[in-house]
């Protein structure tokens, strides 16, 4: 029971040089990352960053324009991969004239040999919903619950959720998150939650994928990413950055009077006269979103295995931190 649900050696999702495009506009470009199985991953980024595109690629709803994306080692649309993925799109489309019972029946009919009616029914029953209620008559939160029941009933190994909690009140949001986490705990499901509401993700996710402008900015374990950064506060006057910062990667720095606050990726010992603290998740994300020029950072577990092998073959010991 003390074994973690994640299996670091198994790969749930892996992207190498992934690109996707709507007509002329690139929604994703040159994305490379890896998500180990059993993780609960936050997919974060501003609106229009490419979160939904990435999820629909992983769900097998669209094809990449370039590069590759694999789920459990296969193409997302492949016959042996599709049954293992469940997907909840942002608008949670369901057939409005179906009853809840019809909707669950659809899950059973379209997932032969996989469907778990008991799990789906329990999820619906926990919300106090009648099986005879029509989907069209449900509130946004109730629809989300039915859509989640449909996803849970499939017994997925990878659960992709696009802004799942956006239209839920705090109580239902807590309930649904709890149901989701229980599902993940029981079946070691890999979960990806796309959101731009940070409060929704704190404490829930142990893995992070930050994308902005269609590119990966941060990827890896939340703890490791936080530990790899420091917030430095100290006194500094004059133009430019202090010389003692030269050895470190400065993500963002702000001067207020004589005080300088900087978020850095330390490389070696930090200067003595600066007060260093570990950033909060929010500080880390905001700093990266405000500084599009900062190099991307992938922790070792988030480096694509395929890319890694290639680099090792070339004699490189580590993936360069700059993805671009």
């Amino acid at each position: 029971m003390t074994g973690l649900t994640f299996q670091p050696e198994r790969t749930a999702v892996e992207a190498v040089g992934l690109g996707a495009r709507y007509r002329r506009r690139w929604a994703l470009q040159d994305c490379s990352f890896r998500l180990p199985a059993g993780r609960v991953c936050a997919l974060v980024g501003p609106n229009g960053a490419g979160k939904s595109t990435l999820l629909s690629l992983a769900a097998g709803l669209r094809r990449p324009a370039e590069g590759s994306l694999t789920v459990f080692g296969g193409r997302p649309g492949a016959a042996d991969v599709r049954p293992r993925i469940a997907y909840l799109s942002q608008d949670k489309p369901l057939y409005p004239r179906f009853t809840i019972a019809d909707t669950l029946r659809m899950g059973r009919e379209l997932n032969p040999g996989r469907w778990d009616q008991a799990v789906a029914e329990r999820t619906v029953a926990d919300g106090g919903l009648s099986h005879e209620a029509r989907i069209g008559d449900l509130s946004g939160g109730q629809r989300t619950r039915v859509a989640l029941a449909l996803a849970f009933g499939k017994r997925p190994e990878l659960l992709l959720l696009d802004e799942p909690m956006a239209d839920l009140d705090p109580l239902v949001r807590h309930e649904m998150t709890a149901a989701l986490m229980a599902q993940a705990a029981e079946h070691a499901t890999t979960v990806v939650i796309a959101s731009h509401v940070l409060a929704e993700l704190e404490g829930v996710c142990d893995y992070l994928l930050l994308i902005a402008d269609g590119r990966v900015r941060l990827a890896g374990e939340v703890e490791d990413l936080l530990a790899a950064h420091s917030v430095l506060v100290g006194r500094h006057e004059g133009p430019g950055l202090p010389r003692e910062f030269a050895t470190h990667t400065v993500v963002e720095s702000r001067a207020t009077g004589r005080q300088l606050t900087a978020l850095v990726r330390p490389d070696g010992p930090l200067p003595e006269q600066w007060r260093a603290t570990e950033p909060s998740l929010e500080e880390l994300l905001l700093a990266h979103l405000r500084s599009p020029g900062a190099p991307a950072l992938l922790t070792p577990s988030a480096e694509p295995r395929a890319l890694r092998r290639r680099l090792h073959a070339q004699g490189a010991s580590r993936l360069p931190e700059a993805a671009a």
Partner: peptide
Amino acid sequence: VAATAINPNTVLK
């Protein structure tokens, strides 16, 4: 996690 809505890996840790 069903009661607290936190990540199961956190509990196991």
